[in-house]
Design a protein around this nucleic acid. Structure first.
Length: 597
DNA sequence: TTGACCACGTA
DNA sequence: CGTACGTGGTCAAC
């Protein structure tokens, strides 16, 4: 039952606090939230399983709903439940950083795999309805000729067939305070159903079944914060680095063209000048190389690298490629497009993308050339704390498989040392063999050591082989933390060779997904633990890079932050691996520039 | 305009 | 016959 009222002039929000308290909200309780910026917000108690109609709700009209959220955060420190990161964006944009959340979209992706989400799909999936039968506004318009359908109650968010009503989904929930409250209640119900799903399947390890879901939710919030905060960049230094590759910033289109021609000239000058060569066309480049006696199947850098001495044009071409990359992707245009007046590089962030659920980022944040890292630098009075996880994937393999011998090996600072000893091979061989096992590589020199791994670490190798078998058979796999990784349809069996290749590819894909995906979960659990503990130091995570964290901190807190990062790793690992004795290590440094590490 | 492929950057 | 991702170039098929 919804209690809706305006936030009266003079009411300072304490009335809402009292009402939530009376409705059963306690410190640390779960509270669903929807916001209509500048208009109002709705809350619903999400502590206990309840039919959503009986859920205690509160809604308020207020032109500053975020201020109300901030007051409740301060009073109850609840776990905020929201449908999607949109709510997180509204809070972060208004300067409010809450401690704990539950992102229904993010948990949906964890439970059911893929990247799709959204309240309509989430609701349908949780209620066993076919996502394909979801109604849309477009369909409604066609079928009902502009009329509201079959006399249903449009004030009712759930249609007779169980789907969410599309008018509500596209924003009708914001029409009035009763609806806001109801919409919050539905978020609370979705959260409850998700928790049920998680606890049904989790207990294999005795870990807290919602731990990964909470971490994934917080990671989504962290992504929103990363987008707003940006990565601190010394723009002058960046321009200087760029200039060292492609010269000073061109003033107009003509200068851009001239500089481009000059770049090309430095390669073409090594040729006899007959015929034109388009350096940006790999076919042309390959033909050109053949004419000077360099015959290669493709023109990739790693293939040309050993042939630098064969003809001077090879060396010039490789240098050209590097400069061209800067000019087209990481040049002045890149600075102009993605760096704000405050010297922050900003791009979109995704909390769980792709097969394995890694974080992804745009605007080049995840693939900035190492040569430009010197431009990433702390602002005055601040330092960067850089921490990266050492040998995370093989350590993760030890944890997820529970292989006793491999878990013992993780006690070493260098995991590959005890493995090499045990196999009786060089460290380099042991390393290649372990990586080959995780990535599904079968060719190359790892063959013999791979057989040794089977004997020495049978449980871990079995774990990987099981994943591979599932992938080849088209069965979905689940990561340690419970993320579903969907396997596509059967490869078409038109050509036996192609089919065999496709099966092998899926085997490798699955083999890798259970390791890479589990590593991504651990990383996010670590990152959000750090995020939570950074608040008192006025420090912020500014970059996440798969196994590396970059934190921007006031200089006087640098040492404390560096210490905290290690602590957080142990906490996160214990929670995530349900107490399995696996050691994770970081290397941490306090630096002024990213390149200093 | 879109999608494939190449190429290359990061982990 | 090692995986994942983002970005930009060219070319062919629209």
């Amino acid at each position: 039952m919804a209690h809706a009222a305006s936030l009266e002039a003079g009411e300072n929000g304490l009335g809402v606090v009292a009402e939530l308290h009376a409705a059963g909200l306690e410190r640390g309780g779960w509270l669903a939230l929807v916001i209509v910026p500048g208009v109002g917000c709705g809350f619903a108690i999400a502590n206990e399983p309840q039919p959503d109609r009986e859920r205690a709700c509160v809604a308020r009209y207020t032109n500053d709903p975020v201020a109300l959220v901030a007051l409740i955060e301060q009073t109850f420190q609840p776990r905020w439940v929201w449908w999607s990161r949109q709510t997180a964006m509204q809070l972060v944009a208004a300067g409010v950083r809450v401690a704990r959340c539950w992102d229904v979209d993010a948990v949906h992706r964890l439970l059911f795999g893929g990247w799709q989400a959204g309240c309509a799909l989430v609701w349908a999936t949780l209620h066993g309805l076919d996502g394909g039968s979801m109604p849309t506004m477009g369909q409604l318009d066609l079928l009902s000729d502009g009329n509201i359908d079959d006399g249903d109650d449009v004030d009712e968010p759930i249609r007779p067939d169980g789907h969410l009503r599309p008018e509500w989904v596209v924003g009708g929930w914001a029409a009035d305070s009763d609806r806001m409250a109801r919409w919050a209640a539905l978020a609370a119900t979705s959260c409850h159903l998700q928790r049920q799903r998680l606890s049904e399947r989790a207990p294999s390890l005795g870990g807290e079944p919602t731990a990964t879901a909470r971490a994934e939710s917080a990671a989504e919030l962290l992504c929103v914060e990363l987008m707003f905060d940006g990565l601190p960049l010394d723009v002058d230094h960046a321009a200087q680095l760029i200039g060292s590759y492609i010269g000073p910033r061109p003033a107009n289109e003509t200068e851009i063209a001239t500089s481009r021609q000059q770049r090309d000239r430095r390669v073409l000058d090594h040729l006899d000048g007959s015929g034109s060569v388009d350096l940006r066309n790999p076919t042309h480049v390959r033909a050109m190389l053949r004419r000077v006696g360099v015959d290669v199947p493709n023109t990739r850098a790693w293939r040309l690298e050993p042939l630098r001495d064969v003809h001077p044009v090879v060396d010039a071409l490789l240098a050209w490629r590097k400069a061209e990359r800067i000019a087209t992707t990481y040049g002045y245009g890149w600075l102009d497009e993605h760096v704000g007046a405050d010297g922050r590089l900003r791009g979109e962030w995704t909390g769980s993308d792709g097969a394995a659920g890694r974080m992804t980022a745009q605007a080049g944040l995840h693939n900035m050339p190492a040569e430009l890292r010197g431009a990433v630098s702390a602002e005055p009075g601040h330092v960067l704390v850089r921490a990266d996880l050492g040998q995370i994937e093989p350590r993760v393999l030890a944890a997820v498989s529970g292989d006793d011998a491999l878990m013992r090996a993780t006690m070493a600072d260098d995991l590959y040392a005890p493995i090499a000893t045990r196999l009786g091979v060089e460290r380099a061989i042991a390393k290649v063999a372990v990586l080959a096992a995780m990535y599904g590589q079968t060719s190359g020199t790892a063959g013999q050591a791979l057989r040794g791994l089977d004997a020495a670490y049978p449980v871990a190798m079995r774990y990987l082989r099981d994943a591979e078998d599932a992938g080849r058979a088209g069965r979905d796999v689940r990561t340690h933390g419970g993320r579903l990784v969907r396997m596509g349809a059967d490869p078409d069996a038109t050509d036996p060779n192609r089919e065999r290749a496709a099966l092998a590819a899926r085997g490798r894909y699955a083999r890798n997904a259970v390791v890479q995906g589990a590593a991504a979960e651990l990383f996010k659990a670590w990152a959000v633990t750090v995020r939570a503990r950074l608040a008192p130091f006025d420090a912020r995570i500014v970059l996440c890079l798969h196994d590396e964290l970059l934190i921007h901190a006031p200089v006087e807190h640098g040492a404390a932050v560096a210490e905290l990062v290690d602590d957080c790793l142990h906490d996160a690992a214990r929670r995530w691996s349900a107490g399995r004795p696996v050691r994770f290590v970081t290397s941490t440094s306090i630096i002024a520039r990213w390149s200093d590490a």
